[in-house]
Design a protein around this nucleic acid. Structure first.
Lengths: 109, 109
DNA sequence: GCTGATACCTAGATTATCTACACAAGGTTG
DNA sequence: CAACCTTGTGTAGATAATCTAGGTATCAGC
């Protein structure tokens, strides 16, 4: 399983922002969803997740509000802001650019 | 140009190893080649390049020997070792796995 | 009452890469 | 011949993202 590394450095913000375009979600659910959608390949550790969420909130890309989760507990739900949507576009474009460039090299004859 | 970042963290070893499958090359040429093949998207700074080369050599994945470069100067040429070839395969597989997983998320409807 | 899942958080270590240097040889141009 | 650019190697220190490893609390199930 995911031995060598759980994430590609620099992509966590992108993954979180993208996941929040679907629905407002609390941190725990974001991590679960990333893991699930990636086929258990990507693992978001809590020590990466929460600092990242705070970072994104501080940048104004997401906003938090407390609400009741599916299990009936209080949880911090995050919503994407307009600026966050822009940031997501920029990060997605950058990821495309870089990953395509890397693939050019890796798949050289 | 490459404003947001010059590389994706964790991929430099892969890029170097892959580049060395073509020909033995000196560091400067490796950086130039990565930049060129990637369409000027990936930029390898010297401060990343040389430490990476030393790291790879210490791991036994590449071997160095001094020789004359195309310009007639002395340069350190690196060759891929058998272990390096294995490492390249592992890193390439890992990159495929992770980038595919990220793309699953990024390209969600 | 214990365990496991959910849900939040932080401190410190690790590690890759970048910035910004320094050095040297060779070629080119004024 | 002086200034400068390109090639080529290298290091020290800063930056920043992620991981490790802890901590707290609630709730469900046994």
């Amino acid at each position: 399983m995911g031995k060598p590394s759980d994430l590609v450095q620099g992509t966590l913000d992108l993954l979180i922002l993208k996941t929040l375009t679907l629905d407002p979600m609390h941190g725990w659910a974001i991590a679960k969803r990333i893991q699930q959608v990636s086929g258990e390949v990507l693992q978001v550790q809590q020590g990466s997740l929460y600092p990242a969420l705070h970072r994104l909130e501080q940048q104004g890309w997401i906003k938090a509000r407390w609400a009741e989760s599916e299990t009936g507990r209080q949880a911090k739900f995050y919503v994407l802001t307009a600026a966050g949507r822009k940031q997501l576009e920029a990060e997605a474009a950058n990821w495309s650019r870089l990953s395509a460039a890397i693939n050019l090299i890796v798949s050289e004859a």
